[in-house]
């Protein structure tokens, strides 16, 4: 599982750098579901924001939209996991 987790970092990096945002988002969501307490996903979301974001009013002036979305999804998935298992 440890090496799988390391491999997921490489996959996530490649997906963020070369694939459309919706694909990167889907992969991140799957990793959140697959790995237990995937904190690294939130870190990658933060990195995504640093790479691509600009402050525009469309997202209420925020430059951390992906980060906050990932944080909410992470908390939600972990809560659901806790209730299911």
């Amino acid at each position: 599982m440890f090496f799988l987790r390391i491999f997921s970092y490489i996959v996530l990096s490649v997906v963020i750098l070369f694939f459309p945002w919706w694909f990167a988002g889907t992969v991140l969501f799957l990793f959140f579901c697959f790995f237990k307490k995937y904190y690294e996903g939130i870190f990658f979301a933060f990195m995504y924001d640093l790479l691509f974001s600009v402050p525009v009013t469309h997202f209420w002036g925020s430059v951390h939209v992906v980060f906050f979305t990932a944080l909410i999804v992470f908390v939600f998935i972990e809560n659901v996991r806790k209730r299911l298992l």
């Binding site: 459309p20 995504y48 691509f52 600009v54 939209v65």
Partner: peptide, 10 residues
């Protein structure tokens, strides 16, 4: 990098 790769459209 061009849209749609970036969610922000940058």
């Amino acid at each position: 990098v061009r849209p749609p790769q970036s969610l922000y459209g940058t």
